[in-house]
Structure formats: structure tokens, C-alpha cells
Amino acid sequence: MNVSDPTSPARHDVAAADARGPARQGAIAQFCHRYALLFAWAILIAIFGAIEPGSFLQVQNFTSMFNSQAVLVVLTCSLVLTLTASEYDLSVASVLSLSAMLIAILNAQMQVPIGWAILAALAAGLLVGTINGVLVVVVGVESIIATLGMGSLVSGITLWISHSNLISGISNTLVTYVIVPQFFGISLGFVYAVAIAGGLWYFLTYTPLGRQLLFVGRGRRIARLSGLAVGRLRFGALVAGSFLAAIAGVLYAGTSASADPNSGDSFMLPAFAAAFLGSTSIVPGRFNAWGSFAAVYFLVTGIYGLSLMGIQVFIQNLFYGGALIIAVALSILVRRSETREPDIAKEGN
């Protein structure tokens, strides 16, 4: 059967076209809601620009911010993917560290060509993702617990293979291809991050698989009754999420030309904060790539501005922690206010 099935009853235009009007004023509110984060970002820039006009409003400030936070963008994308399937992956930060550390050890200490080192790092990400998948989908452990354990285990391995040392001396090739500014101060690392966010956006919005993942995340039972391969989709999301975390690790190695066994830890909370904050914008109510992308730079701008004003390091924790809590609370409150209205509409029928 076809989309334009000629045998189907020809009463397509029966009783349509009513109740379509009142949506007009809602559209403006919706627009504001979608882009509120971007407005907030602009306001933040304006405030810091006004306070520190000399040091803050420099092009190179912004380019270095864009370049250095590519790692966080990719890590956030990893979370967006798993969170869409309603799985929490708490091992991503450790995978990032492991991936960066493998590159450092293989390339800087063992003189393995950088290409092979990167492949090994990505393979490690796939391996961790597969173990997560087996634990969560096959065995049935709650993802938050399984990945918490895996995260600790992986970070133990990272400490072990590095003897808890920072390892530097990673090939300049990788550094050139990641962090060295190429055009107008923008590095390739940022380009990769944009490409990955765009790819994730495409996947979640324009492929059947991405839509199916959304259904699995919102209603596992309904998805199963609708004939989706729920187990395979969840497994796939966990593996792909870990893989993206490994890519973030590669970018990290390229950004700093070295690897610290604890390098991933400082990314964990910012990534969650950005993923949740991102789910309140662009496509409000859903974890989405561009919303998270905007959220990363909104948060980083805030921190950068505050640090320029000479505020101490602890502000970073305050800011990210506060942002995470506020973002989650906000999204729940918004959702509640949206579901309260329909009750009236429902009674009308």
C-alpha cells in the first residue's frame, strides 16, 4: 500500500479547518521560548562587555573560547544521544580520560603513529560502550548504576596505565589538526565539534532511527508494542555515546598536546548542565544538539566573564552546579505549566 492510496475512502477534506486559528499568539511565546537561551547569551555578553569593555570584547577571546570548548561540545553530544534514549551514561568523563591517555601513551611514549593511536582510543570507547550495553540491556542493570561503576573502573585503568602521571609530547600533527587556528582564528577542533553537533541533529531529527530512539526514551513499553527493537536501540545508543566520548578524548589530546589521568573529570558536570540546559531551548522539551551547543557556549561565556572579573576558581563549580539544577527545575516547571492548560481544552470536547 502506498501513501496516496487510491482505494482509501475519498473523504479527506471532511470537517477539517476548524480550530486552527487561536494558535497565532502561542507562536510568539513559542518563539521566545525556543530562543530564550540565545537571548540570555546575548545579554550575558552585553553585561560583561559593559563591565569589562577592554578585556572581554576581544575577538580572540571568543575564538579561543570556541576552540577550547570543542571537547565539551562533543562530550555533551554524547550525553544528548544517551539521554534521548532515557539512559544516563556517567562513564563518559572516564572514557574521555582513557581515550586521551591512550593516545598519549601510545604516541608520546611508545612512538606509535598518531593515526593508529587515535584508532586505538576510539576502539577503547567502543569497548566500554559495549560493556555498558551488555550490563544495561542484556543483564538489566539500571544505566545510572552500571555506568557509575564502569566510569570508576575505567578511570582506575587510566590511572594504572599512566602511573598517575601527566604525559605530554603528543604528536604535533594532532595538535595542528585540532587546536591551531586555521582561518580567522578558528581551529579545526571547533569545526569538528560543529560537524558532530550537526550530525547528531540530523540523526535525531531526520532519520527513522533517531525518531525511534526518542520513542524508546519516552515510552519503552509503547515502543516495544509498536514493534521497535527496543533492546538494540538502547544498546546502540550506549555504544555510540561512548564512542562520541572517545572522540572528545581525541580532541582533548589534540587541544592540550598531553593527557592527564583526571582530565575528563572536570567535564562531567558541565556536560550534564549543558545537555539539560540545552533541552530547554531550540526544541524545548527534548534533548537536542543545537540547544546543547548553545548551552555550552552560554555557560562558558559566563565562566569566562566571571574569571575576567577576577573571581576565584570555585565560581566554576557554583556556576555549573547552579546551571544544572536551574535547567532541570526550569524544564520541569515549563512542562508542568504546559500540561496544565490542556485540561481546559480537554474538557471542551
Binding site: H12, D13, A15, D18, N349
Partner: peptide
């Protein structure tokens, strides 16, 4: 949904 008379057909 129009074919099945869902209201509103949006």
C-alpha cells in the same frame, strides 16, 4: 487523522 475524523485535525 482527517480520514478518521480526529478533532482538531492538527
Amino acid at each position: 487523522i482527517t480520514r478518521f475524523g480526529v478533532r482538531p485535525p492538527d
